[in-house]
Simulated assay, not measured.
Amino acid sequence: MIAIFSDTHSGDGHQLEGEALTAAREADTVIHAGDFTSEAALEAVQSECDLLYAVHGNADSAAVRERLPTARVVEADGVRFAVTHRRDGGETGLAMFGRSRDADVVVFGHSHRPTVVETEDALLLNPGSHADPRGNRPGFAVLEERADGTALEGEIHDPNGTVLESFELEVRHER
């Protein structure tokens, strides 16, 4: 399982609760699209995960920015993820960011709005913010391999586990 988070915005902890916390603990890979805000929040999220790949966001402290890149590529379960906090140019800018990294999925944050957009180049995925939704539904994403191994089935959940949106992603990279 792959769990995806963004926009924790915490001064002292991970703010994970309910199904969001369970997903972080049980996932083989956790991806975070930035804005932990504090080093304590970053370390708290890291303490709940076996394997965390994260980038920094615009609201992250200098200490977090020193520890995390602005962008990165993650390969997990036959899927290539390009991760950033935000990109200028909206959906087009995000799609170009993904194309330049041969990504299947572009994971991004910043808006705090759970979003899934299919483009010609890549699936654009914003898991939302489980802790600070700012008028949006709180959210995080989970992707699990389909039984036949040809696709990942994805869902955006709210912290209590209610599915907000479902999507499917074909596996196209070799494992």
Rank of each mutant, 00 (worst) to 15 (best):
D50L: 04
D50E: 12
D50R: 13
D50M: 01
L52P: 09
L52A: 11
Y53P: 00
A54D: 11
A54H: 07
A54I: 06
V55M: 10
H56M: 05
H56P: 06
H56D: 09
H56V: 08
G57N: 08
G57F: 11
N58Y: 02
A59K: 07
A59D: 07
A59N: 14
S61N: 04
A62D: 15
A62I: 14
A63Y: 04
V64N: 10
V64P: 09
R65C: 13
R65Q: 15
R67S: 15
P69I: 09
P69R: 11
T70G: 10
A71K: 15
A71W: 14
A71E: 15
R72S: 08
V73Q: 13
V73N: 08
E75P: 01
A76G: 00
A76E: 10
A76L: 06
D77L: 14
D77T: 03
G78E: 12
V79A: 06
V79F: 03
V79L: 04
R80D: 01
R80L: 01
F81E: 06
F81W: 03
A82Y: 05
V83S: 09
T84Y: 00
H85V: 09
H85K: 08
R86D: 06
R87A: 12
D88G: 15
D88Q: 09
G89L: 01
E91L: 04
T92L: 14
T92V: 14
T92P: 02
L94P: 04
A95P: 09
A95F: 04
A95L: 07
M96V: 12
G98T: 00
R99S: 06
R99N: 01
